[in-house]
Write a protein that binds this DNA or RNA. Structure first.
Length: 353
DNA sequence: ATTTGCCAACCAGCGTTACC
DNA sequence: GGTAACGCTGGTTGGCAAAT
């Protein structure tokens, strides 16, 4: 049973006008390459930034970073000229009743920011794509969710470009979700497409989570929360900054090691290894009493990492040493195994997506 | 001569605080 | 409030050396 409401929500603009500033000079090969990457990213972006025109780097970054998150607890809170500004949930969506599947979709999108619709169909609709499609249409029509298609990376052996549909919450969608009471305590809610180049990679995190979370719950873990790398990184950098401010002469490696320990993150080759996502959970009673006996904190976590073919050997080794639960898609697995074929233990520790 | 693998450099996208 | 400057990881390229 769905409560219908007047459908007069302003639809978000699909595209923004392109600026047509002339290029100041002929770009070199690197600039041309970067330009092509930028154009590809812009092509797949519904809210794309104006085309590049100025040669200097930082001012460009400042302009493009306009919609970036301002705080960890409230990502993308900053003003975005491409969005209608709202300080509260629009009246149309206050108290809107959604079906359990729709609420579940909203929650998953809020936890992971970007999820492939096929994965949502598998996890929420028992694989029924059509049912998901109907509900996504409804949520889109209410301005709670937006979807887009992304080009998947090619592995070099195929000319065909595969595409996948991904979804995210809108600003209003996040507001609805927060008011709904569906969100566990300490769970950040994300919204909006960011980092177009990494969207394919990020969309795989949900798959990895599904596998890891099933295992955690099977072992008695409960009250699962997800922290994405944005949030983990923010906490790490805040502490690094504080430590440097307190003692500017202190060795950076020393600071990093201390901060890594504070956040229970591995410190490998002089760097803090930050996972793609951390699943926090309340352990079962046995584990809890064991922790209490040892005087350690209650609560557990598992760090997950999605490896892709783009990872270099050094990256792969660092991730393996970090002790993360590593995942890779079958297509990336072949390329990864070629890079670390002499390190069989590492391959064994990579799980299929 | 060509291919392959590695590394350094660069940029993107995220974070923070300081300063004007 | 906008800009600057700094930090991080991930992704990509060009250049170089080694292998074929």
């Amino acid at each position: 049973m769905r409560i219908e409401i007047p459908q007069d929500l302003p639809r978000r603009r699909e595209t923004s006008p392109q600026t047509s500033a002339p290029r100041p000079q002929e770009p070199n090969s690197v600039q041309r390459h970067l330009q092509s990457i930028k154009e590809r990213a812009d092509q797949s972006r519904t809210n794309h930034a104006p085309s590049r025109s100025a040669p200097s780097r930082r001012p460009e970054r400042q302009r493009e970073a306009a919609p970036r998150p301002r705080s960890v607890k409230d990502p993308r809170e900053s003003t975005d000229p491409r969005r209608p500004q709202r300080n509260k949930i629009p009246s149309q969506t206050i108290g809107m009743q959604l079906r359990p599947e729709e609420r579940k979709v909203m929650l998953e999108l809020g936890k992971f920011r970007v999820v492939r619709t096929r994965d949502l169909a598998d996890s929420v609709y028992d694989g029924k794509q059509r049912k998901l499609g109907e509900d996504l249409n409804y949520l889109r029509s209410k301005g709670l969710v937006e979807t887009r298609h992304i080009n998947l990376r090619r592995d070099g052996t195929r000319r065909q470009i595969d595409r996948a549909e991904v979804a995210t919450l809108t600003r209003d969608g996040r507001a609805w979700l927060r008011k709904s009471g569906e969100v566990p305590k300490d769970q950040t809610v994300y919204y909006g497409f960011v980092k177009p180049r990494e969207m394919e990679h990020d969309s795989l995190i949900y798959r990895a989570y599904r596998d890891a979370s099933q295992r955690i719950e099977r072992d008695g873990g409960s009250n699962l929360r997800v922290k994405l790398d944005f949030e983990i990184k923010a906490g790490v950098q805040k502490d690094i900054y504080r430590a440097r401010k307190a003692d500017p002469k202190r060795d950076m490696a020393d600071i990093k090691e201390e901060v890594a320990a504070k956040h229970s993150l591995p410190f490998v080759n002089g760097g803090i290894q930050i996972p793609d996502a951390r699943i926090e959970f309340d352990p079962n009673d046995d584990a809890r009493s064991q922790e209490a006996d040892q005087g350690s904190r209650t609560g557990g976590h598992e760090d997950i990492e999605v490896l892709t073919a783009a990872y270099r050997r050094g990256h792969l080794r660092a991730k393996a040493q970090a002790g993360f639960r590593n995942y890779a898609s079958s297509s990336d697995r072949a390329s990864i195994s070629a890079k670390i074929e002499d390190e069989h233990q590492m391959m064994r520790d990579i799980f299929d997506l």
